[in-house]
Amino acid sequence: MTLNSIGLDTKKAQTIANDLNDLLANFQLYYQNLRGIHWNIKGKQFFDLHVKFEELYTDANVKVDEIAERILTLGETPLHTFDDYSKAAKIPVGKDISQDDKAVKLIVDSLTELLKLERQILDVSSDANDEGTSAMMSELITEQEKTVWMMKAWLGETV
């Protein structure tokens, strides 16, 4: 086994970085979806949702940077083109969504997919003794679970 400069098995670190690149691609699409619904939201909930969506996309932008920097820390290169993102992303694309229920549902559906990826990365990083990635995934999961709960509550649904 060969260890990298941060003490992780290089092959395991590469696998984790590949998984993080998938997460990065999906996060970038999530970010772009949030920008779109922020710009296009209409209706009586406009003022509340417009502000909330801006809060979410600002946070997502920070998370994108953190994920990319973790990939670099593991010794790999983060994806950085829209072509790469669209090929790797699994979350739904939100095009021309201006209705409040559809916008919030898009957020829930997107976070549900991100959570699946993050739990998978958490398992792999835990097995590799990669505390940095594990801690990052735990933080993302905790925050996103709360956001899903809040968005589902707004929709009048339960988790």
Rank of each mutant, 00 (worst) to 15 (best):
A103D: 07
D101A: 12
S5A: 07
Y30H: 15
S86E: 11
L114I: 09
E54M: 08
Q99W: 04
Q28K: 07
I41F: 10
D48V: 12
T112M: 08
A153I: 04
I91S: 01
T147E: 15
S125D: 10
N21A: 04
K146A: 15
V108I: 14
F53K: 10
D109K: 11
D100C: 14
K44H: 08
Y85M: 11
D19P: 01
M137N: 03
K152Y: 12
R119D: 14
E54N: 12
L56K: 04
L111I: 03
E145D: 06
D48L: 02
E139L: 04
S5D: 07
W154P: 08
M1D: 12
I16E: 09
E66K: 05
I121V: 00
F82L: 15
T77Q: 05
G132A: 14
K11F: 15
E118Y: 07
K102M: 09
G7F: 14
G75M: 12
L74G: 05
D127S: 01
V104L: 06
F27W: 10
E157G: 03
D59G: 01
N129R: 12
Y30G: 10
T10R: 08
D65C: 08
L79N: 13
N61G: 12
S134V: 00
A13H: 02
G7W: 15
L106H: 00
I121G: 00
E54P: 05
I91M: 02
K11V: 10
Q28Y: 11
K44D: 05
A89S: 08
A17G: 03
E143C: 07
V51C: 13
A25H: 08
G36H: 06
K146R: 11
Y85A: 15
A128G: 01
L106C: 01
P78H: 06
L20H: 02
E113S: 04
Y30V: 00
